[in-house]
Simulated assay, not measured.
Amino acid sequence: MKVEIFDPAMCCSTGVCGPSVDPELTRVASAVYSLGKKGFDIKRYNLANEPDAFTNNSEITKILTEKGPDALPVVLVNNEMKKSGTYPTNKELSEWFGVKSEELQEKPKVRLSIDLKQM
């Protein structure tokens, strides 16, 4: 099972980079992180940061040509479009990967490295 999510252009995938937090982006980021950590094949591509992922995928190129950027996000499951214009629900992701919905809510831990050497 391979799931690819093609995001519209945005500054980050978590939804915490702008003035207000988008809970839907936060939910999706947590689900993708949780599934990836379990070893599942799931990836997200951001149009602003990874345009090659869009242009190198014939299905995505076709969708964008026909419907334009409003079709994003687009979700491919095994290279076949499953959703367009909305993100997959946790229920859909749990069914596709055979896991419980509760397993999709792990939050990525951000580590900061601070060098406190004195001059």
Score class of each variant (00 low, 15 high):
residue 10 M to W: 03
residue 17 C to F: 08
residue 5 I to A: 01
residue 13 S to W: 01
residue 3 V to A: 03
residue 27 R to W: 06
residue 9 A to D: 12
residue 11 C to T: 13
residue 10 M to T: 12
residue 28 V to D: 01
residue 34 S to C: 11
residue 10 M to D: 09
residue 10 M to R: 14
residue 8 P to Y: 02
residue 30 S to D: 14
residue 18 G to F: 04
residue 2 K to H: 10
residue 12 C to D: 07
residue 22 D to L: 05
residue 30 S to K: 15
residue 12 C to A: 11
residue 23 P to W: 01
residue 14 T to I: 14
residue 27 R to E: 12
residue 5 I to T: 03
residue 34 S to T: 10
residue 17 C to E: 08
residue 30 S to G: 12
residue 12 C to V: 09
residue 17 C to I: 09
residue 18 G to S: 09
residue 20 S to M: 15
residue 3 V to Y: 01
residue 5 I to L: 00
residue 31 A to R: 04
residue 27 R to I: 07
residue 17 C to M: 08
residue 25 L to I: 09
residue 4 E to S: 12
residue 3 V to D: 02
residue 11 C to A: 14
residue 4 E to H: 05
residue 4 E to V: 06
residue 34 S to L: 10
residue 14 T to F: 13
residue 31 A to C: 05
residue 13 S to H: 02
residue 3 V to F: 03
residue 2 K to I: 13
residue 20 S to A: 15
residue 30 S to P: 08
residue 6 F to K: 04
residue 4 E to F: 03
residue 34 S to A: 14
residue 25 L to K: 07
residue 26 T to H: 07
residue 4 E to M: 07
residue 24 E to L: 12
residue 23 P to D: 03
residue 15 G to A: 10
residue 28 V to K: 02
residue 21 V to H: 04
residue 9 A to K: 11
residue 18 G to D: 06
residue 35 L to G: 04
residue 29 A to E: 12
residue 22 D to K: 08
residue 19 P to L: 14
residue 5 I to N: 01
residue 34 S to P: 09
residue 19 P to Y: 12
residue 11 C to G: 11
residue 34 S to W: 06
residue 14 T to Y: 11
residue 30 S to F: 15
residue 28 V to S: 00
residue 6 F to P: 03
residue 6 F to V: 05
residue 7 D to G: 03
residue 23 P to Y: 00
residue 28 V to H: 02
residue 10 M to K: 12
residue 24 E to H: 08
residue 24 E to G: 03
residue 21 V to Q: 06
residue 9 A to Y: 09
residue 9 A to S: 15
residue 31 A to G: 05
residue 31 A to D: 05
residue 28 V to C: 01
residue 7 D to V: 06
residue 19 P to R: 15
residue 25 L to N: 02
residue 19 P to F: 10
residue 13 S to A: 11
residue 3 V to Q: 00
residue 32 V to L: 00
residue 6 F to D: 01
residue 34 S to R: 10
residue 18 G to Y: 04
residue 31 A to F: 05
residue 25 L to R: 07
residue 26 T to W: 03
residue 22 D to V: 06
residue 36 G to W: 02
residue 7 D to E: 14
residue 20 S to H: 13
residue 23 P to Q: 00
residue 13 S to D: 03
residue 21 V to R: 06
residue 6 F to H: 00
residue 31 A to W: 04
residue 22 D to W: 03
residue 34 S to M: 11
residue 6 F to R: 05
residue 21 V to A: 07
residue 29 A to S: 15
residue 25 L to G: 04
residue 7 D to K: 05
residue 14 T to P: 09
residue 32 V to I: 05
residue 16 V to C: 13
residue 7 D to N: 11
residue 10 M to Y: 07
residue 6 F to Q: 01
residue 2 K to F: 10
residue 19 P to M: 14
residue 35 L to E: 01
residue 26 T to C: 12
residue 7 D to H: 10
residue 25 L to C: 05
